[in-house]
């Protein structure tokens, strides 16, 4: 089976909302979260999607 899409990382300022096996990056502020997401997007060749103001996920399409 070929995986079409996968969550590569989660970036959040709301640590209690994210658990599980994916890589989670805990940030202090929204600005820090955006900077980390922008870096991870470029490094992982994925897209940063916003699930809420305090939670981004990087998805490989």
């Amino acid at each position: 089976m070929k995986m079409e899409k996968a969550i590569l990382a989660a970036i959040t300022t709301q640590s209690e909302k994210v658990t599980g096996s994916t890589a989670v990056f805990h940030c202090e502020t929204k600005e820090e979260m955006e900077a980390v997401a922008a870096n991870l997007e470029a490094i992982l060749d994925g897209i940063a999607h916003a699930l809420s103001d305090r939670l981004y996920i990087i998805v490989k399409h």
């Binding site: 997401a37 922008a38 997007e41 897209i47 999607h49 916003a50 981004y56």
Partner: peptide
Amino acid sequence: KGAGLYVDNIYIMNIGLPER
């Protein structure tokens, strides 16, 4: 609309970063 990109009323994709 939020992070959702629309052309007219057709949803295209979720773009999270304000820079993008």
